[in-house]
Design a protein around this nucleic acid. Sequence first.
DNA 1: CTCCATCAATAAGCTTGAACTATGGATCAG
DNA 2: CTGATCCATAGTTCAAGCTTATTGATGGAG
Lengths: 306, 306
Amino acid sequence: MDQRIELRHLRYFLAVAEELHFGRAAQRLNIAQPALSQQIRQLEKIVGVELFRRTSRSVRLTDAGATFQPRARDLLGRLAADLDEAGRVGRGEAGRLDVAFITSATAIVSEQLREFSRRRPDVQIKVHDGFTVDVLAALERGTADIGIVRDAEERDDIDLSLLATERFVAVVPTEHPAASDDHVEATALATDPLILFPRTAGAQAFDMNTQPLRDAGIDVRVAQECSNWHTIIMFVAAGLGVTIAPYSVTTLLPAGARRLELDGPPAVSRIFMATRRGDSRPLVQAFIAASESVTGRDHDLTKGTP
Amino acid sequence: MDQRIELRHLRYFLAVAEELHFGRAAQRLNIAQPALSQQIRQLEKIVGVELFRRTSRSVRLTDAGATFQPRARDLLGRLAADLDEAGRVGRGEAGRLDVAFITSATAIVSEQLREFSRRRPDVQIKVHDGFTVDVLAALERGTADIGIVRDAEERDDIDLSLLATERFVAVVPTEHPAASDDHVEATALATDPLILFPRTAGAQAFDMNTQPLRDAGIDVRVAQECSNWHTIIMFVAAGLGVTIAPYSVTTLLPAGARRLELDGPPAVSRIFMATRRGDSRPLVQAFIAASESVTGRDHDLTKGTP
DNA sequence: CTCCATCAATAAGCTTGAACTATGGATCAG
DNA sequence: CTGATCCATAGTTCAAGCTTATTGATGGAG
């Protein structure tokens, strides 16, 4: 394309094409008529063909001009829309946000998303679920903008903010000897096969989970590794073993499983929102703000329910 | 849209977005680096948001910039295509041509169209068929660019060029007394009901058609008016009457109809191509040229076939 | 820790070209 | 023939985009 063409040419062309009168078109453009004639002539030189057939009495579009007119109009329209879109993205009113979260935090995340998409209906949200390590890796490599993780450790490239705190509970099959009561000593579980997620999925979370057992002097050996809480609970219900779980994943239990409060020193799990340090993009800040308005009101699950 | 934005901004933006380096981008654009910085800053002011996040060490696209980049690229691409299209239309290499023609000239028109669309494959052709008066009216009001008419009279706003000349023949039902021979005196048809198109569809053509009858001193009265030749011939075959027709519409006759050469002074019909006087548009001229290469080689149908 | 190289931003002067005014030439009405 | 209309041309002006020179910030090498 000829590098000399400018939007000015299109704007002037459209004015003349609509008025079919150089004088009036120039007036509408707030320029003098000769300037307009000049620019149109220049445009015609760039395109290589006449766009108007003019006599001193009349101005008419040529076929080429008539072909070009709707396209030029469309082009200016698109540009306006694109500029507007870019502006809205820049102000965080539109765009796309990638949220990665641990599966066990679905409840909190769905609340955050509901509030956020209410505030920013034009923002497309993409969610990814996975383990804490996956979430952090996604954040790091830029695949995610927001991460929801459990019991992560401080890092200098990631900002963490606490979303919720919850206690650990034991989940046992209903036929377990301790299942008749609603609380249990960790030592009473020492001989049961332990079902848990792999330690590689989140070392710190794993260690937090098993803290009550280690507190009770039990040598933690996982009998069955399983990658998500739902499956773990189902295995427990099937009588394959017991588990120690954050309270929130035990709110809905299948028939064969029972939740028991843990006696002894209280152990807590923390759910954090993670962002790249210094990520000041409006959408990220907006998500943080939306999140703050929903968390902190109902997310202290450290105390037992009556 | 802000009136100050120009394509220069888009070109510069794309260069920086691709190089992610003001110095190299400026070099590629053949301008100095400060000029580029200035223009990008100006673009950002127009859009209202940052498009690049820059330190003295690195340049990165912001979300808004990343959103805008493909759109800007697309916009420039479209513009280039549109300019090219307009150029081709102006040179007659593309565009659209409206051809109006009389139904009885379908044979000639289809030859013209075949040749023309071979030469100008990118030109869209729209055809309309009708009576000579309709064709001329379409030309006049600009609905058609090319007209094919029969026996039109000279006018000062229309150019006519002769495409073909053909004799008139009589068409009679096979049970007609004269049908045993292959020629007939016009007087022998004097008492038969005459089937013809309405005179309002083309006064001159009508008068040409009926000339042989008037030459023979017959008072021409049309018994049955019919708007197209195919139907007229079918009516003749059905025994409803006789007709006088240009030779070309009688090349294919149904079982009940027979073509008879007319004795007496030869009468001819002329098929013309009509264009608006002074219509010098390349497509029109190209159509005329294409037409000239196909007509004149086989379109003298004034003589009888052996 | 200092020094140097890199790179974008800023400052100031220059140059290009778009717009202006004045005028010419063509066409049409009266 | 005269006047009015309207686009094109000529010459001038001035804004704005470009240039060179410089500053300031950052990161790597010694």
